[in-house]
Amino acid sequence: MAELVAVIASTHHPFYYRASTATGEERPPFADEWVRKITAFRETLTKARPDVLVMVGSDHFHQLWLDNMPQFLVGKAPFYDGNFYNEEREFGLPRMLLKGQEDLSTYVLREGIDAGFDLAFSNELRIDHSITCPIITLRPQNDLPIVPIYTNIFAPPLPRPKRFVQLGRTIRQLIESWPSEQRVAVIGTGHLSLELGGPRQFGPHGPAPEFDQRAVEWISTGDIEGCLAEVTLDSLHAPGNATHGFMDFMLMMGVAGEGRKADYVDTYDLFHTMEAYFTWYPNGGPR
């Protein structure tokens, strides 16, 4: 069977690429420390020596639209182009091409549907910065095939937090039962507190530092029950109007497992939002 060699949860700050590649006067003062943190985080994936990446993210009204909106969607294609015109325009993100791991997509879809998730699928999926950002930060050589999984954290009605955790648990079961000798890492990205297009946006910190502190505690200790006891679709409005992206962190807690402490934890308090980076090694350490 395949081996789950790393579980990684991260924010997907679209400005990292521009900040980290800027030089001279263009380079923001926080860039060097950010690059240092990302380089250390990257090492946690490199050490796990994955062959395949399952990438969990969320389309930001790029290919998925309100006339036909899936809650959970799995890409099944030989390749995925990455990044859209408005992400080049606003964030300076580059066009990318990623290879797909189609046999694992096939397996996740068939077995995931049989396990109780009516997963949507796409045979021609252009992925956006929720998936390309972690490639840029964690695997910039972009040499591994992926299975993209999109969640709807954006267009209500949304699935409830518990459903995200359940999907995470199911993704783990599916990877560990995949008849293959491949080493698989799951990388999922979301947000801590975040406000976009509202009065609390683009402040000196994230809109709700106290929520961020709680969130980092839940994630780093694997406290799924504590998190589910407090986080609801309604409660997520309070820390910021885009904070429903935290549910992708909850999905990743489901992948990592109840009570499972993260093996690597780091954060970086930036303007606008707090960065957060977590790695779990399901089998006790990188091998």
Partner: peptide, 11 residues
């Protein structure tokens, strides 16, 4: 949707 409004108005 505030994300749509923000993105376009930034542009």
């Amino acid at each position: 949707h505030p994300f749509l409004t923000l993105t376009l108005f930034i542009a």
